[in-house]
Amino acid sequence: MGIVIRKRWKLLWFAGALGAGYFIQYNFVLPFLSIGHWLPDCQLILTVYIGYRYGAVAGSFFGFFSGLMQDVIIDFYGLYALSKTLAGYTASYTASRHVLLIERIYLPVVVAALAMFHDGIYYGIYVLGVPMSWRTMMVTYALPNAIYSGIIMFLLLMLIPKRLLAHMPASE
């Protein structure tokens, strides 16, 4: 019984922290990070990191709920949720013990690649029935944003002490 109550509290904490974190980054962090119309996808960075560190289940769940929050902003429910769920799930398969020493380089590349994967799904649905080209959207927005997200991930990893990074990914 005690375990169940503790789990419920954990879930509430998780939801609260997610909501608060999203609110803070959307209102206070993103405006400072934008370069023209290019923006890093902070939710995606976190989703990929969680999927990479804690496995497919955590990555999928985090991706789904953080995507849902973004869906509220763009008023297109399910679009970010779907693409982020798949990105979070895929992130778990990129974890490997062979990259432990080069994780600061490897993880940003994974973030950039999964950002492209994520945006591929996102724009794939977004351009349906509207006069936009998927290829143009990918070249104009997805590619620069993916590179930018990768750079942000690299900078974050440089700030985190190495001893905190040096542990095994969950799926290994």
């Binding site: 497919a56 289940v57 999928s60 769940f61 991706g63 789904f64 995507g67 849902l68 869906d71 297109f76 429910y77 399910g78 679009l79 949720a81 779907l82 769920t85 798949l86 799930y89 649905i125 977004y126 351009v127 349906l128 029935g129 509207v130």
Partner: peptide, 20 residues
Amino acid sequence: ILLSLVVASIFLLQTNANPQ
């Protein structure tokens, strides 16, 4: 879990009235 979340996302997508 992945399947459930994908189904939930598609269900949410269905609730929209966008041109897409």
